[in-house]
Write a protein that binds this DNA or RNA. Sequence first.
DNA 1: TTGTATGCGTTATCAT
DNA 2: ATGATAACGCATACAA
Lengths: 342, 342
Amino acid sequence: MSAGARPTLRDVATQAGVSPAIASRVLNADPTVRVREETRERIQGVAKDMGYVPHSVARSLRGARTGAIGLVMHGLDSPINVDVLAGAQAACARAGYVTLLADAEQLAGDHSQLSAFLARGRLDGVILHSGYGEEDRLLEAITSSVPAVLVNSEDGRPVPTVRVDDAAAARLATEHLIELGHREIAYIAGPEGSQTSDRREAGYRDTLARHDLGGAVDVVHAGWSAGAGTTAVHELLRRPTLPTGLVVANAVAASGVLSAFRDAGLAVPGQVSVITIHDSWFLQHLSVALTAVRLPLQVLGATAADLLIDTIEGRSPVRDVAITEPAPELVLRRSTGPTSRR
Amino acid sequence: MSAGARPTLRDVATQAGVSPAIASRVLNADPTVRVREETRERIQGVAKDMGYVPHSVARSLRGARTGAIGLVMHGLDSPINVDVLAGAQAACARAGYVTLLADAEQLAGDHSQLSAFLARGRLDGVILHSGYGEEDRLLEAITSSVPAVLVNSEDGRPVPTVRVDDAAAARLATEHLIELGHREIAYIAGPEGSQTSDRREAGYRDTLARHDLGGAVDVVHAGWSAGAGTTAVHELLRRPTLPTGLVVANAVAASGVLSAFRDAGLAVPGQVSVITIHDSWFLQHLSVALTAVRLPLQVLGATAADLLIDTIEGRSPVRDVAITEPAPELVLRRSTGPTSRR
DNA sequence: TTGTATGCGTTATCAT
DNA sequence: ATGATAACGCATACAA
């Protein structure tokens, strides 16, 4: 055994004066094997002394499992998405899996990256949280090679799906504005085609309808970025009259909304109230501390991981999960207030 | 070949009527092998038709390489650290490596996670960007198993180190305030023991000294979080007199600083100017758009990756890298202005 | 120009 | 209670 080289199972077995087979079973605590207590201790002692570490690759080759889960994520420039990643990563780690991280856009755009990632034997499964643009392209390649779980996508897919209760969150946000007396409430949407944004829009429309405000539906398509929020406000400002309340689909976009109002000299919440979906540390530090509906994003990631792991380990036939616990929660700050107009 | 099972190299070889050895060498474009053009095409055709994907695990077991790099990161709740992660991830992917992500704190606190991550044969190397608390504990475990590169740590370590030019950034920030006429400038530091914060402090001290303001050195220890920034301001407010300018070690902490001033009713930059180190998308949306010194964080991550890959692939004896290109850059926004006092 | 044989480190099966 | 052996899929040294 040369200096840097780690000992193999055979090294341990030889040193302990037993066969590799016995050493393997003892070190893996195989319950079906009966060895003398003394032998067991000797093997374990030698393994510890020699600093034996199992060779994960040999193990995966022998068995079918790799103990690795792929996380294909998009938009890591947004803390919202990072929360999902963190939740998924932590849940995988707790369950004994390591996680491979890839960027959805890069993977979709570079075939060699995709095949390196999906190389046979590398992964036990994949969690896919991608922008709607990459999703279809990636999904087929992934599912043809390993089990997958989709985050925040439409259900009715060929793979299990996990999402938060977007509609409920939007309802809560819209209700809040209505309770404050607002009647002209616009929804600043995400990019066109985003299912997440569509579900929130549905909640917004629901709520207006239930309050006989169905005629006031007012949707402005923007995007997930701060710049998109700013652009949406500029669009609003070109109109003769402004809504009194805004439900913004996403906290990052809402940052841009607030800055645009500040730059335009409009008071929030004096002239316009703003509420957003998703909470994050930065909201209270924006130009006006931003009222939001908190959604359990880490739980979302963790649930996706748990569902995938159940699938991998042969449990649970659950297909689609909508997370209702913890429920969406209103986090009151300073960006919403009673309407001054009627 | 059953339904779900992917074909092996042997399946391809058999189907093409050649031996596995030839198939292997053709598919890997081994330059030392000379085969008939017709044979080559037949093998490649069959591989494509059957959807052959090399088995990464078998490959790693045979060779010594795994094509995987571990990213051990801390503080993914801060966009600053996520930038470093994104840079490293992208650079690894470009070079054909997949990346395993782990959280430094979790790894340091859970021995079974650590050994799963460092299992023999899993990784070709590790990039470690950890809080100063976990670093020492993790470093030994990691380096005893694979090559590593340290991000933003002190040089003179047993492993190669990469960092940005913290001192230069702090000098630039401090100079800026001095040029605006400030003479009482405090440094809001990171947590005690942080080398990154210490390097920035040195730059701050340098600059004061060079302007004969060495007597005005004023360091308040805080931390990297927004809450720490807020606390530091509360501490300042208990003093009889406030500095006119603040250099804050980190943009997230600076968010808390700005909010604390807003809540206390102090005007920024009217009564106190604030500049921070690190730029990020949210700075322009804070209660006052925050002036900052931009440091190339993605480049930092990418450089760490490149250095590690050089090491893995047997090139380059470079030990410690201080990134000077692109140089720290002043990003002027609204949180700094001429001092009103003298 | 192509084929055969071996071993990477494990674990499971079957024997003793 | 323990050991011998085979096999996972691939890449290489060597043979033909």
